[in-house]
Design a protein around this nucleic acid. Structure first.
Length: 422
RNA sequence: GUGGGCGUCGCCUAGCGGUUAAGGCGCCAGGUUGUGGCCCUGGAGACCGAGGGUUCGAAUCCCUCCGCUCACCCCA
């Protein structure tokens, strides 16, 4: 027997309403905010991710599904959504469109990780990117959209963590002083942090190890070592968020796991206990497009994990809007009636009325049992009596009232009953 | 990559050295002639994760592997 690959999951019918709901709400909101849908391939050239996400990040170093195709091309299953969108922006000359170009996507994401609660090797993100505008009001818009998404989905207790990690003008100096601060402490740090000190000092700040925490807490804050432009940007963003009424926590230890971020970084975290502390995250990436060979173009974006959204919705007991299926079950008694019943099902479907039937030569009892199990509201019964009279019996399952209806009037009668209109 | 927990019908669970491996849910069928839900009866469905061992005898004890799961790491 085969079972699905580790870290993947089947989304079975009972769970589909959650997915549909999240996608509907997200899609509606994105459009409401003026974002347009984009879909990019499931795999891209490996270099696209290595160059943007960054060597030294976990994603690139150990989590990518990389392979060679039969032509020798080096490809990687998309481990994140932003780089492909930027690639598409450049490739299709979107800088000729009115700026900023605002795009959203739903995409499967692949990372070779050990699976655990809320973490998979294939998961799905809804994300949005606004490319071609540096104004902090755009950062605020993206954050507003992200925040609104959780609110509209009914999630409660979310917290918005916000930080600025500076730009190429001010970050190097900050990193230098950060390293200078940490260097004397090196012997006291965990192994990972000792490596971070050399490879990616910013990440020293979000080490979760108890031994390292105090140092991170005391460390210099990037947001206090910003250049004038970055400081103004950050302050302006905070003012904008305040005007939007979006509550945020300044978190100077927030850095993100991808190298391309500049200035604004943010994460949304659920209050609930559990290992997965992030439900969505994003930030500004003003150097990314240029790094990919486009002309210098500022941008900001956000992505959130659909599985984690659904996980939190379930934890919080959020009910979905009921979606009753209006299906009519056509049952029959006898072989002649069976032929007629199957014809009737086809006719109803053509008339726009959802209809099903049993397929086998089942007893009427078995058919009605099936109708009941499927939770249909109406059953039609077609037997010799009905055939003789050119009619069918319409049975309302709840309550069990039934009446004869002239065959010719069936569609209109059902339309009226099922959909409440004629 | 590192730890902890767990693997018995589709799902949940009992059995913990000798049972035809049990029960509940679900599924299928029947309970008079063409009628669901409740109830009753019957049926299908498990070589007890896999492979080794110990033993007269193993789902039950031991070992190895595999899988799932939670946590670390990292992230969505």
């Amino acid at each position: 027997m085969y079972s699905l690959p580790r870290g993947t999951q089947d989304i079975l019918p009972p769970d589909q309403p959650y997915w549909r709901y999240v996608q509907e709400v997200a899609e509606g909101l994105c459009r409401h905010y003026g974002y347009q849908r984009i879909d990019t391939p499931v795999f891209e050239e490996t270099a696209l991710f290595v160059r943007t996400v960054g060597e030294g990040t976990d994603i690139v170093d150990k989590e990518m599904y990389t392979f060679q195709d039969k032509g020798g091309a080096n490809l990687t299953l998309r481990p994140e959504g932003t780089a492909p969108v930027c690639r598409a922006y450049i490739q299709h000359g979107m800088h000729n469109l009115p700026q900023p170009v605002k795009l959203y996507y739903f995409a499967p994401i692949f990372r070779y990780d050990r699976p655990q609660a809320g973490r998979f090797r294939q998961h799905h993100q809804v994300g949005f990117e606004a490319i071609g505008e540096a104004d902090p009001a755009l950062d605020a818009e993206v954050i507003d959209l992200a925040w609104r998404l959780y609110v509209d989905l009914g999630l409660r207790g979310m917290s918005l963590e916000l930080n600025s990690i500076g730009c190429p003008a001010c970050r190097p100096a900050y990193l230098e002083s950060l390293v200078a601060y940490y260097r004397p402490l090196a012997a006291l740090l965990c192994r990972d942090c000792q490596a971070r000190l050399e490879r990616n000092p910013l990440r020293l700040l979000d080490c979760k190890k108890e031994g390292c925490q105090p140092y991170a807490g005391e460390a210099l804050k990037s947001s206090e070592h910003l250049c004038a432009d970055c400081r103004e940007h950050f302050e302006s963003l905070q003012r904008r968020l305040a005007r939007l009424g979006i509550p945020f926590h300044l978190n100077h230890r927030l850095v993100r796991g991808l190298d391309y971020y500049t200035r604004t970084v943010f994460e949304v975290q659920p209050q609930e206990e559990g290992a997965q502390s992030t439900i969505g995250g994003g930030g500004r990436y003003d150097s990314l497009i240029e790094q990919l060979g486009g002309k210098s173009t500022p941008a900001v974006g956000f992505a959130t994990g659909i599985e984690r959204i659904i996980l939190n919705m379930k934890r919080q007991g959020i009910d979905l809007p009921a979606q009753a299926e209006a299906t009519v079950f056509v049952s029959y008694a006898g072989d002649v009636a069976r032929e007629q019943a199957l014809d009737l099902v086809a006719r109803l479907r053509r008339e726009g009325i959802p209809a099903t039937s049993a397929f086998d030569r089942k007893s009427l009892k078995a058919q009605l049992r099936q109708a009941d199990a499927r939770g249909v509201r109406f059953a039609l019964i077609l037997g010799e009596d009905e055939l003789r009279d050119g009619a069918v019996t319409l049975r309302e399952m709840e309550g069990g009232r039934q009446e004869r209806i002239e065959a010719a009037r069936i569609p209109e009668e059902l339309r009226w009953r099922v959909f409440g209109k004629s």
